[in-house]
């Protein structure tokens, strides 16, 4: 089956000499829900901007559903819907007009554009706001408006750059449900996010990009399998003056009545609880210090930094 996106040796050097992408290779299969993760300035937005022609590549090739952007960018663009990180619609235009006009830019006849605008504004809970100027919408509504606009021509590949940034948790969950529904209907989705819980919850495959290079490309399942330790925060009834000794478990005092305990993969938690019991410590609650994917992501990026420091010294 043709890949939804196929990137080969893609590079980008900006006019000021900054090298944003250093020859990345990436394949996203059709119907995938794919996460592109990386710290700020890693090259995520540059990659996405190249796919929709807002940034011109310096080298390499990009194929969208087998159409090379160097040969027929217009055809490739017909298959892409983009939801950018920053709001980029006319603040003085009405919500309905923004979506319908975008349909027109893709060559859709007016009745069809209006029908699709209604469909997606309703699905995203914006139909009641259709006659309002976009500047009057809340931040979450503006994000949903950009999603409706990106979907009006029903692209086969939807790219979302930080779609839930600044969105409250309830709305975020409803957006997740909507994106799952879109993906289930066959639309390939590529997502960048800083909420790694979001990537873990939604995506099947992930690429981690750092300093313009893909440092990992795998299924989320495989990635998490490699996570060899997890940090838990345990709250106690007792107050500590110093860290208690827990043999085989590195411990750090989080506050006077909480401990951070590192548990290696394969070690049963029962052993830890036996040790706590033996010392007469009573556990009130227990939680992960961070999301599992987040832990792995931080480790990888940190490892990359250390390697770079070693090379430079």
């Amino acid at each position: 089956m043709t890949a939804a996106l196929s990137i080969s040796n893609l590079s980008k050097t900006y006019g000021n000499g900054f090298v944003a992408l250093k020859g990345i290779d990436l394949v996203v299969e059709q119907s995938d829900f794919f996460a592109l993760l990386g710290p700020n300035g890693a090259g995520k937005s540059t990659t996405i901007s190249i796919l929709c022609s807002l940034v011109l590549k310096s080298g390499g090739s990009v194929k969208i559903f087998d159409t090379d952007i160097d040969e027929n960018f217009a055809k490739a663009k017909q298959n892409i819907g983009i939801v950018p990180q920053e709001f980029n619609f006319n603040a003085w235009e009405k919500v309905f007009d923004i979506v319908v006009t975008q349909g027109g830019y893709y060559g859709m006849p007016l009745p069809l554009a209006q029908e699709r605008a209604e469909k997606y504004l309703k699905k995203l809970g914006l139909w009641e706001k259709r006659d309002q100027n976009s500047r009057t919408l809340s931040g979450g509504m503006k994000r949903r408006l950009m999603i409706a606009r990106a979907l009006v021509h029903e692209p086969r590949l939807l790219i979302l750059d930080e779609p839930t940034a600044g969105v409250d948790i309830e709305l975020r969950r409803s957006m997740w449900a909507f994106l799952r529904e879109i993906n289930a209907s066959g639309t390939t989705i590529i997502l960048t996010t800083h909420y790694l819980e979001e990537a873990e919850s939604l995506c099947r495959n992930v690429a981690i990009i750092d300093q313009g290079k893909i440092i990992r490309n795998s299924s989320i399942k495989n990635l998490l399998r490699e996570l060899n330790k997890e940090t838990f925060i345990i709250d106690f009834e007792e107050e500590f003056t110093s860290e208690p000794e827990l043999d085989g478990y590195p411990v750090r005092l989080s506050d006077t009545s909480s401990l951070e305990v590192v548990v290696e993969k394969g070690k049963p938690l029962n052993d830890l609880f036996k040790l706590l019991d033996a010392q007469g410590l009573r556990v009130c609650s227990m939680r992960n210090k961070s999301n599992r994917l987040e832990e792995m992501f931080v480790n990888m990026v940190e490892a990359g930094k250390s390697k770079e420091q070693e090379q430079s010294t």
Binding site: L54, F73, Q78, N88, N90, T101, Y105
Partner: peptide
């Protein structure tokens, strides 16, 4: 200035 030129640039309009 408002960046909605991007609506046009990302579309397939020649």
């Amino acid at each position: 200035f408002q960046r909605h030129i991007e609506e046009i640039l990302v579309s397939p309009i020649p």
